[in-house]
Design a protein around this nucleic acid. Sequence first.
DNA 1: ACGCTCCTGTGACGGACGTCACGAGATGAA
DNA 2: TTCATCTCGTGACGTCCGTCACAGGAGCGT
Lengths: 239, 239
Amino acid sequence: MPSPYNLEVEYNCGECRVRADRLFCNMSESAVAALDSVKFTGLYPKGSLLFVEGEEPRGIFILCSGRAKLTTSSTEGKTLIVKIAEPGEVLGASATILGKPYEVSAETIEPSQLNFIKREDFLKYLNTHAEACLHTAQQLSEKYHSAQREIRSLGLSQTTSEKLARLLLDWCERGGEQTTKGIRLKVLLTHEEIAQMIGTTRETVTRLLSDFKKKKIIDVKGSSLFVISKPQLEHLVSV
Amino acid sequence: MPSPYNLEVEYNCGECRVRADRLFCNMSESAVAALDSVKFTGLYPKGSLLFVEGEEPRGIFILCSGRAKLTTSSTEGKTLIVKIAEPGEVLGASATILGKPYEVSAETIEPSQLNFIKREDFLKYLNTHAEACLHTAQQLSEKYHSAQREIRSLGLSQTTSEKLARLLLDWCERGGEQTTKGIRLKVLLTHEEIAQMIGTTRETVTRLLSDFKKKKIIDVKGSSLFVISKPQLEHLVSV
DNA sequence: ACGCTCCTGTGACGGACGTCACGAGATGAA
DNA sequence: TTCATCTCGTGACGTCCGTCACAGGAGCGT
């Protein structure tokens, strides 16, 4: 089936093959059928703005495939990347539930499939399907959990190299691939974006990475980053 | 009725007079009755540790009265105060729902009444009472929301005075009392604790506060802190 | 009153990191 | 090809703030 953006699309949640792996979507047939009836499937190219911080909540997005960055910005234009959302996550749920403005902005960083549900439909759905409500609570718990990790990292690290080390270790957990030359990480982010993830400047990231290279902690080959000595990274964090 | 810690205690949620004001507890009679049957009411003096970061989740605490600080610590002992929880909040819900270790520690900073619900009881309660589930989702949304604020403050402020200004403005929103000498805030925290809230050191807090005093932005009289010029605080944040 | 502990206030010093500036590759469009 | 744009690398400089050290005051128990 030809589809835009080289993306495999599943318009029917009932037939979705990865559903069982997804924290939120893994529900009974009836709940999924109801979900199917209120959702709008959309395909988005890289760089699509799903919603913007401060905007009144229109509804939620279920990230079926692709990835999105959640950001928050200060008035003078400095940007902080709060989280990279992975497939299966629900975006905008807390704002939609509370009826408060979105607390972050969401932008796809890969071609992505998202299922959108309008606010009123979603609230009605939660009210009529206890199971969905439970899964939403789990999803929110997960979100809170990762927000706490972020707070820890931002608030407890005194040096920037500690924050960077934390980030790299995080990536090892998430998408690390063990090789003979260490753990390979696919880095699709620029130094600028890495800087925005740990609240520092591009120059500092560049300097720290070459510092790590000099100390044989990591090695960079093209868009691959090899973590040679994970222990040394952990040492940077705990000390 | 004499009671420990000079605390007015309500053992019966069904008769609780403040219930309607509470995001979580404001539920139908039947849901509240079910709540009453699984909860354990406890009175805690100031300084009680409710749970500790990393511990397996035993259950949730509903903060009926009093206040508690939520903290997270680094291995070398540095502590960050993530949030001051107010009456009506539910503590430990996310960890309890996910079955993951508590992500923060909780300690009362005033004599407090808390209703504890064991993990299995709480999960059963959520499964059988859709309304409670919805309220839990709201509560979690609220938690996520405030965590995002914290992330913004920690990650986007470049100077420490900006963080302190943010904190003071936050307090103005929360418990400010308008007087002729500005907005009065009751500060029950030491400089040390304020430092832990914004991720800095005690000395810096002392210096910044006297700096603010010198600039006539605030004034301190005993345990009262008067915000004389809110605009100047806002200026510190936005610039 | 005395000592003890906790909190607050300050000074000196040094290092980490933000800012500015510039240049080199890399990539892609015309 | 050439030019524009984006990303990365690096040097110089200043400053914010963390660390250490010490002193004065407030509260409290004996």
